[in-house]
């Protein structure tokens, strides 16, 4: 009898529906968590704006009309206009797409590098781990944003390069996280058992250890979406990120910054957009941690 068969029969044998499953229990806890709900709502609204942004802008976000330059917020332009007379609200709405794109793709690439790396280091231990973790230490020694800036200077402006630069600099945190989990999980009985059954290391790592780190990984990745969004805003603000056609929130602030004294709205509102989105993912991550990973609960 294989391990899988044993699991099925025990499920059949167990009294059905008297105990709640982990999933039902998690959903119940999530619903009772107001911060998680607020975070989820912010994240969903943000995703919808990113998808449908172009169809819901009140004005053309790229139409210049210098006569309208730096109009204060009004009924016509809720968040005012920028130097070229473009509607700030409309520009914030179209900026959401790239922000989300950067956040999600960077976190995905970081995870795709960091998770297997951490699993291998944590599972094998010994010399392999030592060498691998020294590499992680070395990458972490550089301030991420400066390393990213140097890469941007090599590759030139553009959102693809931002994604590349932020992915290269951020994966070690995933590696550290997963390594720690893998180190403690590999001593568990079920891992020892699968080893005794002769499963190969790859199977043990990805089918037995990884699923048990997933809760921690999901929590970290949700909170982690915030970091590249902030970093992209910073890089674009310095002129080392998005191009003018990709008008991200950071880029908008970077060109409007010089008019801050006369037109506070064209800098203030894009920055607020960054803050609200980052706040949303942080709240959602906090909520998911309470729900999925009660050990980490404050």
């Amino acid at each position: 009898m294989t391990v899988k068969d044993a699991k099925v029969s025990s499920e059949i044998g167990a009294p059905i529906k008297t105990s709640t499953s982990f999933r039902d229990d998690a959903i119940r806890r999530f619903k009772k968590n107001p911060t998680a709900i607020i975070g989820l709502i912010i994240a969903i609204v943000f995703v919808l704006i990113a998808i449908f942004g172009r169809y819901i802008t009140p004005h053309d976000p790229f139409a210049q009309n210098i006569v309208n330059s730096h109009q204060a917020p009004s009924a016509e332009h809720w968040l005012g206009t920028d130097f070229f007379g473009r509607d700030v609200l409309s520009r914030i709405i179209v900026g959401a797409r790239i922000s989300l794109l950067v956040g999600i793709s960077v976190i995905t690439i970081r995870a795709a590098i960091g998770i297997p790396y951490g699993l291998i280091a944590g599972y094998y231990g010994g010399k392999v781990e030592m060498v691998m973790m020294r590499i992680v230490d070395a990458v972490i020694s550089f301030p991420g944003i400066i390393l990213a800036m140097a890469i941007m200077a090599v590759r030139g402006q553009g959102i693809e390069n931002v994604i590349l630069a932020l992915s290269i600099t951020g994966w070690p945190m995933f590696a550290r996280l997963v390594r720690g989990e893998a180190m403690s999980l590999k001593e568990r009985e079920y891992v020892q058992a699968s080893r005794a059954l002769g499963y190969n290391d790859g199977k043990i790592m990805f089918q037995h250890i990884l699923p048990n780190c997933l809760a921690t990984i999901i929590v970290y990745a949700t909170m982690g979406i915030a970091t590249p969004i902030l970093a992209e805003a910073g890089l674009s603000f310095l002129g080392l990120g998005a191009t003018a056609e990709q008008a991200t929130w950071g880029f908008q602030m970077s060109i409007e910054r010089q008019y801050l004294r006369y037109a506070w709205w064209s800098v203030t509102f894009p920055g607020m957009a960054v803050m609200i989105v980052v706040l949303g993912f942080n709240l959602l991550g906090d909520g998911l941690r309470d729900v999925l990973d009660p050990r980490m609960k404050e």
Binding site: A233, G234, F237, M253, V267, G271, V274, I276, V278, L279
Partner: peptide, 12 residues
């Protein structure tokens, strides 16, 4: 709020 703000925006 502190951890969610872009530092350059807060500075501005």
């Amino acid at each position: 709020l502190g951890i969610s703000m872009p530092s350059f925006w807060f500075g501005l």
